[in-house]
Amino acid sequence: MNPSDISVVIPTLNEAATIENAIRSATRAGATEVIVCDGGSQDETLSIASDTGATKIVRSIPGRGIQLNAGAVFASREVVLFLHADNLLGESCLQQICDVPDVVWGAFEQHIDHPRFAYRLIEKGNAARVRFRGMAFGDQAIFVRRQIYKEVGGFEEIELMEDVAFSRIMRKIAKPVLLTGPVTISPRRWEQRGIVGQTLQNWNLRCRYHLGASPRRLAKQYR
């Protein structure tokens, strides 16, 4: 397997400010199939994606789980990688996947694009969650063999926590591989709400989800 055997799916909704860099990071990493699945953007997201070289542009109703599945329908490569529009793949990320024998699924270590030491702690905590709990989140660029993805039915089509639900299913099949990446992620939500405030909100949302709260209601609070 080589990087061209990996499809990259990017869900978008009004991501004109970020989509170009996300696509370029995928192509620099060796992707030859980049699928943008848009949930109804009102800005220039689609035209920028087209001009930047997205292989396919798919339109979908909004909702990250719905969009991820809609984009994956058009994926034709052996492995599918799901990349958030405000995340960037490191140049060696796809090759790292190829170097893992018989890879089933996994995610990457992160680099939060800010020099504060507190972000280094968040990065380490997120890596430990994958390594010890088998729980990968979407901003770690989850990847999975396409055939297995189809067998488990893809992502649950919910507005939030689709990555948590997917990890719960996948860790029963195989332990996720954690690769060094890194995936560079934006600190924008932490900077808007404060590191402590955003972290506490994330924990609150996940706890409520585990206790049975509606993903739709949680998504409204998250936004």
Score class of each variant (00 low, 15 high):
Q110E: 11
E33T: 07
V130P: 08
A75E: 11
V152H: 10
A16C: 02
V8C: 10
V58C: 00
R171P: 02
L68T: 04
Y209G: 07
A141F: 00
E157F: 09
Y119V: 08
F117I: 14
V9F: 09
V73F: 08
T52A: 13
V9R: 10
R223M: 05
A16E: 07
G125N: 15
V58R: 00
R146C: 04
A22C: 14
L83D: 09
D86W: 11
E78G: 02
D113N: 11
L205S: 06
N14K: 12
L68Q: 13
T184R: 12
R116P: 01
T180Y: 11
A165M: 03
D51W: 01
M1N: 02
R168P: 00
G153W: 06
G65P: 06
A75Q: 11
S47N: 09
A70S: 15
P176A: 05
E44N: 10
N204S: 07
A136W: 04
R28E: 09
A107E: 03
L89Q: 14
P3G: 03
V9T: 11
V73Q: 06
G53W: 01
R189G: 01
R193P: 00
T18N: 11
I122R: 15
S186D: 07
T52Q: 04
Q67L: 11
T52H: 00
Q192I: 06
Y119Q: 07
L46Q: 04
I48C: 03
I23P: 06
W190I: 01
M1W: 03
I122D: 15
L13S: 03
L160H: 08
L160M: 13
F117D: 15
Q96L: 15
S167H: 02
D99N: 13
M170F: 03
E151A: 13
E33G: 04
I35R: 00
E109H: 07
E91M: 09
S25N: 12
H111A: 06
L13Y: 14
I173M: 03
I195C: 14
E78D: 13
R59D: 04
V164R: 03
R216V: 10
E151Y: 06
Y119N: 07
V100S: 03
S7E: 09
G63S: 04
R24G: 00
T52G: 04
N2P: 02
A31S: 12
P3W: 10
F143S: 11
G65W: 08
G197W: 08
A16M: 00
T12Q: 06
N202D: 10
V36Q: 00
L178P: 06
A141K: 02
Y149V: 05
R145W: 11
C37I: 13
E123F: 07
E15V: 04
A127S: 15
E156T: 14
G212H: 14
A54D: 07
A26F: 05
R59G: 04
N87Y: 09
A72D: 00
Q67C: 15
H114L: 08
L218K: 12
H114W: 05
M135A: 05
L13I: 11
L200R: 08
P3Q: 05
R116Y: 03
L83W: 10
